[in-house]
Every structure is written in C-alpha cells, then in structure tokens.
Design a protein around this nucleic acid. Structure first.
Length: 465
RNA sequence: GGGGUCGUAGUUCAGCUGGUUAGAACGCCGGCCUGUCACGCCGGAGGUCGCGAGUUCGAAUCUCGUCGGCCCCGCCA
C-alpha cells in the first residue's frame, strides 16, 4: 500500500517505467496505423448524458442546472455512431471511459479504450484492419510477427469446447459432452440433472495423476462451487484400476463408454460437472484454466488470438424478466434473422465480435443498426417503450432518420493489451496512477470530502438520516 | 451485498504448536579487490511486527475489534 501512496517513488522502479514506455509505443503505433488508413481522431464529450442501461454511471452535478447531472461516458458509443451519420467515415479515438462497478485485477473505474468506427464496411474489412493493427503493435513493441488472418471461432463452439467466450487457446484439454452417454444412469446426482434438462460434461486432465492429489481435487471442487456447481465428480485412471467416489454407481458398459469418449488412459484424471448449461460451462471453463496452470500446460511464449463471432443478440434476464442486449442495444441482428425479431427474439444472432488474446477479451464490437425502424424494434424487445427510448436515445433515432450509412466498429481495452504485452499481473502495473480496489487514489486521497460552500453552489445536501 | 487472504527492515519474504538481544535475500552506506558484465570479499546502518483492546508470568505468534491492501463471487449493456 505504501507503493501506491508514494506512486512517484514506485514509478522510479524500472519495470513500471518500462511498462509505461511500452504503453506509449502501443498508442503511437495505433495512431500511426490508423492515420495511414485514413482515420481521423475525434474527441467526444466527457461531460455527457446518463444512459442507465448497463453499468452504473459516474455522475457530476451541474451548478448551472440545479438537480441535474452529467454522466461520465461508459464509452463514446452514441457519439461515434452520430459521427458516421455526419459523414466522418473513419473515426478513432484513444479515450477514457468510466464505469462505476467493482474493481478487479483487470478492471479500473476509469480505463482507456481504442475506439474505432467505420462506415460502409462489413466484418471482413474490419477484421483485416484490426489484424493489420495488431500485427503492427506486436512487430513494433516486441518485434514479433503474428499469424494472420486471425482464426474465427463461433460463440457456441467456444462455449461447447472451452466453456467460455474468451477461451485461452494456448492449450487443449477441451470439454467433452457426456449428457447422452450417461442417459439412464442410476447415479442420482447425474440422473436429477438429466431429468431437469441439464448437461453432464467433463475434462480429461492428461498425465495428471501425480499433480492432482486428493487435496488438489478438493480445491478444484471448491473452485467449481464458486461458479454455482453443487460439486465435482472425478475419476483417476490408475495403473491398478479406477479410483473414484462415483464409479460404483455406474454399470461397466456406461463407464467404458464415458472413458472412451474422454480418451482416458492410465495417469489421466477426469473431472465431471453436472448442472444447467451455464453452470457447467462456467465451472468447466475455470477448472480448465486452473488445471492448465497446475499441469503447466500453458506456453507463455505463445500468442493465441481469435475472433469470437455469432453471439446471441439477446440474453434473458430472469431477475428483470426481460431480454437484455448481450453486447449493446445498437448491435445489428443478422439480416436473415430480421423477420424473427418479434416471433423468436431469443434465437437472434448478433453481428457482434470479440477479439480474444490468450484468454483475455481485448476488444469487442459490432456492425450497428443503421435503420431507425430496426433500432426502435430493438428498444421494444428490450422493454424500452417509445417514451423512454425518446427520452434517452431520441437524438440517435432522429439522427438515423436523416440517413445513416451502414457502419460498425470496435473498441479495444488499451490497459489490458498493455498488461498482456508487458507480462504484468495486474492492469495497475500499466497505469501511472491507478486506483485501489475501493476506487480510491491513495496518493491524492480522492475521493474526498468537499466543503459546504461547494455543496451549496450545487444545491446538494446529504441525507444524514 | 458476500466469501477468502494478507499486513514483520527500502523491497520480497521467513518466523511451526506463545518463551531470552525478531531473521534471510536483494537494495542501501563504508572499506578492500577487480578482465568486470546478476562481480567478489569484509564490515555497517536500518524494524512502533498496521492500529486498539483482551487472554497470559510472557504475544509478531492466540482471541475480539478496527483500519488498510489484495484475490474472488455477485456486478461489469
């Protein structure tokens, strides 16, 4: 904690200085590549309007307009789309964004985005531009030539094979579906899940018998539980037979079928999760990563980039009892799905894409909706009625009516890219003055109390009850 | 909102079940050596063990509280 308080002293540390310099090289390269490709950097407002869909906003009270607030942007999304309407065909900006949510190793309340938007493009053109940019970044900062084009992975395949929409592709150990294989089992835990329409899936941790001790398996079980699993079944394939708390519940034929599907050999450890598809995917995704680390399967020198595409357009939010946009509400559905917007919204596929680097989401974007009527339908699907849509996004709907070119874009997490390229463990190591987990700045002691005069000017008072 | 973990020298950490002057490495200072390049050798300085209370003959160690850091779940369109 001393180190963050006296950040100016810690910054004398060679590693931090090197990180900041590498970060500078990244932004310099990005600006050069984008300028070479006819992009214009345009600044958008920091004091802007609250759009309370999504993350919590940081708010700024307005002195000249008592009881009204600006919001700090969560992203320049709407401004960049409107720039497209204005005919600024190739926009970019390296820009601060703000989200008032809890912090993580890779999450700060204010973070920097490389924000890009282009008119008259499709996914392919945008991917090419991004690949040029990523190749230049790696070449100029690390002198590494990356392979292009970057492979494309469909969202559903990513979930099925890795349990995650941001898989770490530096190692294998893919998920195996055993739901059909164990149909009719007497093992109550699996049978109950099957009855409720859940899944049984598993991983084969090859040659792990020595590293995955009983204690390690208990730790893995606890890990699975943090993602909602009730437990984790396991089988160790020893030279003298199977060691497992669950094999006794299975008939030999079924057990053989499971083993063969998993390609089990002596020395392997098999771990199973049975639950709803979401829990199975979450738990196995994290088990895969954890086991990968324990077994030292991850080649740190590898650079595995992948596009993840064909995300669902909407996700059903059980708590709010409505659909929410998986990416954001301005993302275009695929053209062939347009007629299903009313009949079967849950099945819609989005023209959205993420760029994943070694298991980290480093960028995300989409082809946007450029027709006012489609945008209005989208709001309707999200349970945003006409008045609310008008109040929050009226300026966008209106702008679209003036004729917007087809457009799309992407936003990169600059801090995350810098974190990965410098090999840092935390995003804080590539930010000159980062905030703590409670979103405070130990050096300046922000946030801080303000004096009564300031409150009065802003016509604010605290409810001290 | 919840769970976990940590707080000991400038830094990274060790200090087991409570027991005399709290240790190591690196760094720092002084000296010596030097064809060195993660130099080597000798010597030295440096610590309210986060804070407060309790248990005890005795607390870095146990208990409670408190402050803070970090990690995770939720959250992050």
């Amino acid at each position: 904690m001393l180190r963050i308080k006296y950040r100016y002293l810690d910054l004398r540390n060679a590693t931090l200085l090197r990180n900041l310099k590498l970060r500078d090289e990244i932004t310099r390269t990005v600006r050069r590549v984008l300028h070479e490709n006819s992009f214009t950097e345009v600044e958008t407002p920091i004091l802007t309007k609250s759009t309370p869909e999504g993350a919590r906003d940081y708010l700024v009270p307005s002195r000249l307009n008592p009881e009204k607030f600006y919001a700090l942007p969560q992203s320049p999304q709407l401004f960049k789309q409107i720039l497209m309407v204005a005919g600024m065909d190739r926009y970019f900006q390296i820009v601060k964004c703000f989200r008032d949510e809890d912090l993580r190793q890779d999450r700060q309340p204010e973070f920097s985005q490389i924000d890009i938007e282009m008119s008259f493009i499709d996914e392919e053109e945008l991917f090419q531009l991004v690949e040029t940019m990523m190749a230049a970044i790696y070449k100029e900062t690390m002198d590494i030539t990356i392979e292009t084009p970057i492979p494309i992975l469909k969202y559903q395949d990513a979930i099925d094979r890795f349990g995650s929409d941001k898989p770490d592709l530096r190692f294998g150990m893919e998920i195996v579906d055993l739901t059909d294989t164990v149909a009719g089992t007497e093992f109550k835990v699996f049978a109950d899940v099957l009855k409720k329409g859940g899944q049984i899936r598993a991983l084969n941790a090859r040659k792990s018998s020595e590293l995955l001790s009983r204690k390690a398996l208990d730790d893995l079980t606890d890990l699975a539980k943090t993602y909602g699993a009730k437990g984790m079944a396991w089988i160790k394939v020893n030279a003298d037979g199977l060691q497992s708390p669950i094999t006794k519940f299975f008939k030999k034929e079924m057990l053989d079928a499971m083993m063969s599907k998993l390609g089990a050999e002596v020395g392997d450890t098999l771990v199973f999760i049975a639950d709803t598809p979401k829990v199975v995917a979450d738990a196995l995704a994290h088990l895969r990563l954890d086991i990968g680390k324990r077994l030292n399967l991850i080649d740190e020198s590898k650079i595995c980039l992948a596009w993840v595409t064909e995300f669902p357009l909407l996700e059903y939010d059980a708590e709010e009892k409505r659909y929410v946009a998986m990416h954001h509400p301005f993302t275009a559905p695929r053209a062939e799905d347009l007629d299903k917007m009313e009949s079967d919204p849950g099945s819609l596929s989005a023209r959205a894409y993420d760029l994943v680097l070694n298991g980290n989401e480093i960028a995300g974007g989409s082809i946007r909706i450029h027709q006012s009527d489609v945008q209005q339908k989208m709001f309707k699907l999200l349970g945003i009625d006409k008045e609310e849509a008008e109040a929050k996004f009226g300026f966008l709907l209106e702008a679209l009516q003036y004729g917007a070119p087809p457009h799309g874009g992407i936003a990169f997490g600059l801090d995350r890219i810098a974190m990965i390229l410098t090999g840092s463990a935390s995003i804080r190591d590539v930010i000159a003055f980062p905030k703590t987990q409670k979103a405070t700045c130990l050096m300046t002691e922000a946030p801080s109390e303000i004096d009564t005069k300031q409150l009065k000017e802003l016509k604010l008072k605290f409810d001290l009850s």
